[in-house]
C-alpha cells in the first residue's frame, strides 16, 4: 500500500500535477468557447485564471521549507519557500477582479442593445 502511494507521489511530482493544472486550463478555454450564455463565459475566464495562478505557484515549492515570513535569526535560503511567485500572483488576482468588472459592464450594455445574453439568439438576429 505504501509502495503504491510512493509511486503515485513520484508520478505526481514529476508530471502529474502539471497535467491536472493544464487539464483545468483546457476545460476553462473550452467552456469559454462552447458555452452559449455570456455570463458563463466570464466565469470560465476566471476558472482559467485560477489554473494559471496555481501553475505558477508550484514553481516555488521546496521540500522542508516553511512560509516566507522570516523567523528569528534564520536567514538561509533553504528554510523558506520562494517568495517571488507569491508577489507576482498577488497583483494578478486583483487585476482579475477588475477584468471581471469590465466584462460585466459590457454584458449589461449588450443586454441593453440586444435584449438577450444567449449567443445563438444574438448571432441569429444578425445585429440591429
Amino acid at each position: 500500500m505504501t509502495d503504491i502511494i510512493d509511486r503515485l507521489e513520484f508520478f505526481l511530482a514529476d508530471r502529474g500535477i502539471y497535467m491536472l493544472a493544464l487539464i483545468l486550463f483546457a476545460v476553462g478555454i473550452y467552456g469559454m468557447i462552447a458555452c452559449g450564455n455570456y455570463m458563463k463565459k466570464i466565469m470560465c475566464m476566471n476558472i482559467m485564471q485560477v489554473s494559471i495562478i496555481f501553475f505558477f505557484l508550484t514553481f516555488g515549492q521546496k521540500e522542508g521549507g516553511t512560509l516566507p515570513i522570516a523567523l528569528e535569526n534564520i536567514f538561509s535560503a533553504e528554510a523558506y519557500i520562494n517568495p517571488v511567485p507569491h508577489a507576482l500572483m498577488l497583483t494578478a488576482i486583483v487585476v482579475s477582479l477588475g477584468t471581471t468588472g469590465v466584462g460585466l459592464a459590457l454584458l449589461m450594455k449588450i443586454k441593453d442593445i440586444y435584449g438577450t445574453i444567449e449567443e445563438e439568439e444574438i448571432t441569429g438576429k444578425g445585429g440591429k
Binding site: I42, L90, I93, M108
Partner: peptide, 29 residues
C-alpha cells in the same frame, strides 16, 4: 496547501466580492 498564505488570503476576499458582482448582474438582467 501549496504554501502561499498571502495569495490565499487575497483569493478569499476577492472570491466573495466577485460572486457578489455576478449575483448583482444576474438580478439586473
Amino acid at each position: 496547501i501549496v504554501g502561499a498564505a498571502d495569495v490565499a488570503f487575497t483569493e478569499a476576499i476577492i472570491g466573495t466580492i466577485s460572486t457578489v458582482y455576478f449575483i448583482i448582474a444576474i438580478k439586473s438582467i
